[in-house]
Computed example of a mutant assay.
Amino acid sequence: MMWPSIALLTFVTLQRLGELVLARRNTAALLARGAREVAPEHYPVMVALHAGWLVGLWLLAAGRPVELFWFGVFLGLQALRLWVLATLKERWTTRIIILPGAPLVRSGPYRFLRHPNYAIVVGEIAALPLAFGLPFYAIGFSLLNACVLHIRMKAENAALESAMILK
């Protein structure tokens, strides 16, 4: 049966495209309110990593059986993703955008982790390939993602510190 893997890949693809639309809208609105983007130079690398991850899954996973345990993990991560989106509302974006004077969000999952969205992405990059029985793919992209996240989190934390948002 090919349809479960195709349905799952279609869902993830549409989800990512929808998130890019939402992020672009939120970014424009934040910039119009006086926000500024920080460290945009790593953004194309991050986009390329995520696009490569998804394209590779389409090439390798379409038609493979879906392992229910990892599919369940992935679904749980989607619930957490919705929690992040609902918490950040119009402040959610895929770029590092600093809105001067805006307090750091400390509700929802941000009560527990400084960067819950990144933790979710780490889980997704591993769980989805594992759901298709692709452990080496999961490891490879997890390592690449760790490199990008190291750069991104360092830049984001520095930007928040310089904006005197973090205490």
Results as ranks from 00 to 15, higher is better:
Val55Asp: 00
Leu57His: 04
Leu57Asp: 06
Leu57Gly: 02
Leu57Cys: 07
Trp58Gly: 04
Trp58Asn: 03
Trp58Tyr: 07
Leu59Gly: 05
Leu60Pro: 07
Ala61Phe: 02
Ala62Cys: 13
Gly63Tyr: 05
Arg64Glu: 14
Arg64Lys: 15
Glu67Met: 15
Glu67Ser: 15
Glu67Ala: 15
Leu68Asn: 13
Leu68Ala: 15
Phe69Gln: 07
Phe69Pro: 10
Trp70Ser: 13
Trp70Met: 12
Phe71His: 13
Phe71Trp: 14
Gly72Asn: 09
Val73Tyr: 01
Val73Arg: 04
Phe74Ala: 14
Phe74Arg: 08
Phe74Ser: 11
Leu75Gln: 11
Leu75Met: 14
Gly76Ala: 13
Leu77Ser: 05
Ala79Asp: 05
Leu80Val: 11
Arg81Thr: 07
Arg81Gly: 03
Arg81Met: 03
Leu82Cys: 05
Leu82Gln: 13
Leu82Ile: 08
Leu82Ser: 13
Trp83Thr: 08
Trp83Ser: 10
Leu85Lys: 06
Ala86Ile: 09
Thr87Arg: 02
Thr87Asp: 01
Thr87Gly: 07
Leu88Val: 07
Lys89Asp: 12
Glu90Gly: 12
Glu90Ile: 09
Glu90Ser: 15
Glu90Phe: 14
Trp92Glu: 00
Trp92Pro: 02
Trp92Ser: 01
Thr93Glu: 03
Thr93Gly: 08
Thr93Ile: 04
Thr93Asp: 06
Ile96Trp: 01
Ile96Gln: 04
Ile97His: 03
Ile98His: 02
Pro100His: 03
Pro100Gly: 06
Pro100Phe: 03
Pro100Val: 05
Gly101Tyr: 07
Ala102Phe: 06
Ala102Asn: 09
Ala102Val: 11
Pro103Phe: 12
Pro103Thr: 13
Pro103Leu: 14
Leu104Lys: 11
Leu104Gly: 08
Leu104Phe: 06
Leu104Val: 13
Val105His: 04
Val105Arg: 06
Val105Asn: 01
Ser107Tyr: 00
Gly108Ala: 10
Pro109Ala: 10
Pro109Ile: 05
Tyr110Cys: 01
Arg111Leu: 12
Phe112Val: 14
Phe112Tyr: 15
Arg114Leu: 09
His115Tyr: 10
His115Leu: 02
His115Val: 06
Pro116Cys: 08
Asn117Met: 12
Asn117Phe: 11
Tyr118Trp: 02
Ala119Lys: 07
Ile120Gln: 11
Val122Pro: 01
Val122Asp: 07
Val122Phe: 12
Val122His: 02
Val122Glu: 00
Gly123Cys: 05
Glu124Lys: 08
Ile125Asp: 02
Ile125Lys: 00
Ala127Trp: 00
Ala127Phe: 05
Leu128Ser: 02
Leu128Asn: 00
Pro129Thr: 05
Leu130Tyr: 06
Ala131Cys: 09
Ala131Gln: 05
Ala131Lys: 06
Phe132Ser: 03
Phe132Arg: 03
Gly133Tyr: 07
Gly133Ser: 11
Pro135Asn: 11
Phe136Ser: 12
Phe136Leu: 14
Tyr137Met: 04
Tyr137Asp: 03
Ala138Gln: 00
Gly140Val: 00
Phe141His: 04
Phe141Ala: 00
Phe141Tyr: 05
Ser142Asn: 03
Leu143Ala: 15
Leu144Cys: 14
Leu144Gln: 06
Asn145Arg: 05
Ala146Gly: 12
Ala146Met: 05
